[in-house]
Design a protein around this nucleic acid. Sequence first.
RNA 1: CGGGGUGUAGCGCAGUUGGCUAGCGCACUUGAUUUGGGAUCAAGGGGUCGGGGGUUCGAGUCCCUCCACCCCGACCA
Length: 576
Amino acid sequence: MLMSKLVGERFKEKPADCSLVSHEFLIRGGYIRHVTNGVYSLMTPALKVVQNIENIVREEMNKIDGQEVLFPNIMPKELWDESGRYTSVGSEMFRFVDRADRPLVLGMTHEEPCVDAARASATSYTQYPFCMYQFQTKFRDEPRPRNGLIRLREFIMKDAYSFHTSTEDLEQYYERVKSAYFRMYARMGLGEAVCVAGDNGMMGGKIAHEFTLLCPAGEDIIAHCSHCNYYANSEVAVSKVHPTGRQPTELKELTTTDCHTVQDVCDLCGGSPEYFAKAVIYRLQDGRHVIAFVRGDYDIEECKLQKIVQSELYEATPEFLLKMHAGSVGPIGLMRECKEYIVIFDESLREEHNLWIGANRKGVHLTGFDYARDLDYTPDFVDIRKVKVGDICSCGKGEISLSKGVEIGNIFQLGKKYTKPMNMTYLNAEGVACTPTMGCYGLGVTRCVASIIEVNHDERGPIWPYEVAPFKVHICITNTKNNDMLQAGKTLHDLFRNAGIDVLLDERKVSSGVQFADADLLGAPFRVIVGRDFANSTLDILERPVEVSSKLFDFSKVMAVRDVFEFVQNYPDKTL
RNA sequence: CGGGGUGUAGCGCAGUUGGCUAGCGCACUUGAUUUGGGAUCAAGGGGUCGGGGGUUCGAGUCCCUCCACCCCGACCA
């Protein structure tokens, strides 16, 4: 490829509105072009990275017996009615009608067409297990796309679906996929990715893991243990609390006029947040409210609470807050459950015997609360809190710390969530009709492009790992008026191109500074410079980003060009 | 969906209480001099000022309305 013909502008200035380096370099390097909210055109360099990632993923999926397919993007409403997701997923799905007013959807994930295809033919247990996968554009009407290729409304994903005749078989395959994922990420330069326990979200099923790249650009919070190998998304992360060890005492009243928060009461009365049973109130789908008590130094993890109450959570109504004396809500006098509300206690309160609570009267709190003595029922303590730095890991030995992470893949054990409602069955060895169990495995290809840059760059641009690099070799000719130099560059270019190695030749009549800056943005792992040392019959070869490692090659004979070629081809670390 | 903001050349921006032919930097074209880290000089090309409507002798500027995009939040495999 000739640099003068490469479509896509490169910029010197950092564009406004780029808070991530990957976003900045993708725009500045001419990799992507913004089209509309959360939608980009992928120019040649970006598409080459996508294709290189796809090739890695394809190889690894084939190694675990995946078969590549392509499901459609346009699907009829009826198919999504079968699984119940036409109504359950909400406005994240793009919906439209055709000329005959038939309702259609754009694919945001492909369990439905996959089950539809599989159920037609996989009717005998002898055909199991099997796995189908595809690379497909997904459409999701995200509330807030952002950060370049990290969060898009239209993006490329590898999604895979496996079918099994037993849970054990699914679990075994699940582990094979896990290993394959680690191999894929290592090959594409995301070797630091970790596998974390995750939420199953809209996919359903019980067991779910996410592959997460721990880096500051991430939008997820990942908890991990300093001792064991525990990693979990904070949405589902569990921990043990340090009990305060405070001793039982009598109930006493505190006057807390104008106190609205735990901190207000602490400031006025000298307490500490962990003394409190704090009330957090949400409204439920059925119109009732949930009053969730958690120790004052913790916050509610809404994802966990939603699962406990089996409902979405909404903001509490002002009427209810007024009636309950929000700011002074406490457990004494509340029923466990009634027509208006339900009460839930977090585990962090189980060991506490001298809690500060609201008195359910404006401007009054109580100290010395002991649920065993002061409630006429024993609460069911459940885990609804966000883990916190310094918590004890469930292993009992390590401490929890929190990091940001980008979710670059996820795997789910779906069970029969789709196969059952969609009436997929096979006959087992006894001739009995059974419902297969299913797993699904996603990997965000476009998101990986951005993630690779996040962890492989310097201040001048991306440094692509060899296997995903859009161009493996970037040849700069610093004086294109010199015909010999031009010819040497072209010879080398043709050599690489004819060997099937992606190569870029910068033969533009621009200053070397412009060439080098553009080369930095395009991030080829090797750079060959036909320049000032050409007069001494030598070429420079650089590996990004270490300019000091430049190596000079004798260029006095044509054979020496081949030396450069072989050097790059045989470079020991090129697959790193 | 709530709060805030921005729309003027490919990109980044200026444009005063309404005023004359709509400007600047980068990029682009041509010529000359440069050529190992984003060169210099000269001459050029490129605009429905987001769309529509209104006020006015006159609108990039004021009013109404619609749209798009960005940021914060809610939300979210």
